[in-house]
């Protein structure tokens, strides 16, 4: 094989209605990975293609229209044929990142929060925002990285969120507490003024109890979040970049999530 690149390879999947695949692949490239975008049907036809990759990404969008509940149809299609393939991939050390609709797919398929080993039965849900409507706004978050390879070394981070179904629910409050105790609630919406986690709108855009914005599985290698790190890969993405001095622009924090993953695979 002539291929000698030492860059880790990231697969960005797209289903009908996925719409953040290109900027997500671009974020992986900026972070130092090689990235391919493939239609989900190609993976269905040839599950073994996943073995070529170290990272699997489910990007944002409205997969299959999302009109039966966000991420439901894509996760049902994964369960029809690919559950074992994905479980294998994670067991062998592969990383999985789900952003927005991708997070919804990981939760609906049961890959989050309990992980591939737990049988992939859904135990949580990303439900309708309390406001009852889709909303796009930047959110501030506090990071408690724990084992999550994507968030190491990050303390606070801001990103744009854009979703109608982002309220993270478990069937009982005890289950949310268990996730918190296990260190799996790695990303929480905070009030920008106090820096404290909040359930209040609009700092928490969807009303998630416990201010949950992102969770990882027990291994820290499967991570999903509602906001969009791929939309903050340049200082010019920052909503207030025109307020910064020209010689000290804001740092493109979203990119760190991708570079962390690439470093972890080095």
């Amino acid at each position: 094989m002539a291929h000698t690149s030492t860059k880790p390879k990231a697969l960005v999947l797209r289903a009908p209605g996925t719409n953040c695949d290109q900027e997500t692949a671009q974020a992986w490239r900026l972070a130092g990975a090689d990235a391919d975008i493939h239609h989900f049907n190609r993976l269905l036809e040839n599950p073994s293609m996943l073995a070529d990759y170290r990272v699997l990404t489910f990007p944002g969008g409205f997969s299959y229209g999302d009109d039966l509940g966000a991420g439901r149809v894509w996760s049902a299609r994964i369960h029809l044929k690919l559950a074992d393939t994905i479980r294998d991939f994670v067991e062998k050390g592969g990383l999985v990142l789900g952003i927005c609709n991708g997070f919804q797919v990981l939760v609906a398929s049961g890959l989050l929060p309990d992980g591939a080993r737990a049988g992939m039965t859904p135990t949580a849900s990303l439900s309708y925002n309390v406001s009852g409507q889709f909303e796009a706004r930047w959110v501030d978050m506090a990071v408690a990285p724990g084992k999550c390879v994507f968030l190491q070394g990050i303390d606070r981070i801001a990103m744009p969120a854009a979703h109608g179904e982002g309220r993270f629910l478990t069937s009982t409050p005890a289950e949310l507490q268990a996730l918190e105790s296990a260190g799996q609630v790695v990303l929480r919406y905070v009030d920008p003024a106090t820096g404290k986690p909040t359930e209040a709108y609009p700092a928490n855009p969807n009303g998630s109890p416990g201010a949950v914005a992102g969770v990882c599985d027990p291994t820290g290698r499967v991570f999903g979040l509602m906001p969009h790190p791929e939309r903050f890969t340049s200082p010019l993405h920052h909503p207030n970049w025109t307020r910064f001095p020209k010689d000290a622009p804001p740092s493109a924090d979203g990119l760190k999530i991708f570079t962390n993953a690439v470093s972890a695979l080095a």
């Binding site: 290109q22 796009a136 969009h228 939309r231 993405h237 207030n240 025109t242």
Partner: peptide
């Protein structure tokens, strides 16, 4: 404005709402 995704494609560098609190 907020019901529309105005940042998908990651190219919107001056957004429809601006300022300290956007």
């Amino acid at each position: 404005v907020r019901q529309y995704d105005h940042e998908v494609q990651a190219a919107t560098v001056v957004k429809p709402l601006v300022g300290v609190h956007a």
